[in-house]
Computed example of a mutant assay.
Amino acid sequence: MWTIAKLTWREILSKRIFHITLFMSFAFLLFYAIATYIAAQEATEQTGGQAVSSDFFLAQTFFATQILGVGLYFAAFVTALLAILSSVGSIAGEIESHQIDTLLARPLHRRTIVLGKFAGLGSLLILYSICLFLGVLAINQWLGGEILRFEMSALQVIKALAVFVLPPLLLIAVALLFSSITTTINGGIILIILYGISFIGGFVEQMGVLMNKTSMINIGIISSLLFPLDSLFRKMTVYLFDTAGDPISFATQGLFGSLSTPSNAMLVYAALYGITALWLSIRRFSSRDV
C-alpha cells in the first residue's frame, strides 16, 4: 500500500495542475496579506486605534472574524478543488489510458491499490491544507494589527485545524468511489455539483436561522446529510471563533461564520460517510472488469 502511496505522491507532484495550484495559492496568500494590511491600516486611521464603545467592540470583532473567515473560506475552496481534480481521475484515468494494467499485472490486491491512492492523496492534501490554513492565520495575526487580529488559544487553533483537514479526505474518498464507477469527466462533474449543493445549502441554512424560517433550515440540513462538506466548515469556524463562556457569540455570526452550531454527531456522520465511500470504492473496483 505504501508503495502505491509513494507512486501517487510522485504522480501528483509531477502534474501541471499541482504546480499551478501552488503558484495560485501563493498569489492568493499574497493578495490576502495586502488586503488585510490595507484594511487594518484604514480601520486604525478611522478609529485612532482605540475602541470607544461596546458597540464598536462588537462591530470590530465581527469585522475581524469575517476577514479571517473569508480567507479560510477561499482556502477551503482551493483545497477542495485540488482534492477533486487530483483524485477524480486516479482510477478512471488510468483505466482509460490502460496505465493501470501494469499494476494489475503484479500480485497486488485491488484493495491495496485503492487504499494506497487514498493514503498518498490524503497525506499530500493534509499537508497542503495545514500550510494554507496556517498561512491565512499567520497573515491575519501578523498584519491585522489591533483591529483585525483575533485573540485565540492554541487549543482553538488545533481543534479548528483538525476539522479543516477533514473535507479534503472526505472528497478524496468520494472521488475514488466515482472514479471506480464512471469516467473522469462524469465523476468530476458529479462531485463539483455535490460540492456546490453542500455550500449553497449551508448558506440557505444560515439565512433560515437569521430569518427564523424552518423550511430554509431543513434545506440546509438535507444538503448536509447529502454531502456534509459545509457542516465541517461551519464546525471549524465555531471551534476557531469560540470564546470562553459564549460558544455562539456575535463574533461567530455572519456569512463566513455559523449562526447554528453543527453537532458533534455531524463529525461522526462525516467520518462514516467517508469510510463508507472508501469501502464502496474498494468493492466496486474489485469487481470492475478492466
Rank of each mutant, 00 (worst) to 15 (best):
K6T: 15
T8V: 00
S14I: 09
H19M: 12
T21M: 05
F28V: 10
L30T: 13
F31K: 07
I34L: 15
I34P: 08
A35Q: 14
A35T: 14
I38Q: 14
I38M: 11
A39E: 14
E42S: 11
T44Y: 11
E45V: 14
Q50E: 14
Q50L: 14
A51W: 12
S53V: 06
S54F: 11
F56L: 14
L58W: 13
F63M: 13
T65P: 00
T65R: 05
I67W: 10
L68C: 08
G71Y: 00
G71I: 06
L72P: 07
L72K: 08
L72N: 10
F74H: 09
A75V: 04
A75H: 01
F77W: 12
A80H: 08
L81P: 10
S86C: 03
S87M: 02
V88Q: 04
G89T: 05
S90Y: 08
S90D: 12
G93A: 07
E94F: 06
E96V: 07
S97M: 02
D101H: 09
T102K: 10
T102F: 15
L103E: 02
A105R: 02
R106V: 04
R106C: 05
T112H: 04
V114G: 03
L115E: 01
F118Q: 11
S123W: 01
L124S: 02
L124I: 02
L125P: 04
Y128H: 06
L132D: 05
L132K: 03
F133L: 02
L137A: 06
I139Q: 00
Q141F: 02
W142E: 10
G144F: 04
G145R: 01
E146L: 12
L148F: 03
F150M: 12
S153A: 10
L155V: 13
L155C: 09
L155Q: 11
A160K: 02
A160D: 04
L161F: 04
F164W: 00
V165G: 01
L166D: 05
L166E: 06
P167V: 01
L169D: 04
I172S: 03
A173N: 07
A173M: 03
V174G: 08
L176C: 05
L177C: 09
S180Q: 10
S180W: 06
I181Q: 12
T183Y: 02
T183C: 02
T183E: 00
G187R: 04
I189K: 01
L194T: 07
Y195W: 10
F199A: 09
E205M: 07
G208C: 06
M211R: 12
M216K: 07
M216P: 07
G220L: 04
G220F: 00
I221D: 13
S224F: 08
S224W: 10
L225G: 13
L226S: 08
L226M: 12
F227R: 07
P228M: 05
L229M: 01
D230W: 06
S231N: 05
S231V: 13
S231A: 13
L232H: 01
K235N: 11
K235L: 15
T243G: 02
T243E: 12
A244N: 13
A244T: 15
A244R: 12
P247Q: 11
F250P: 12
Q253K: 14
L259H: 14
L259N: 15
S260R: 14
M266I: 15
L267M: 11
I275H: 01
I275Q: 00
I275M: 09
W279A: 13
L280W: 04
I282W: 01
I282K: 08
I282V: 15
R283Q: 15
R284Y: 09
R288I: 13
R288S: 13
V290S: 09
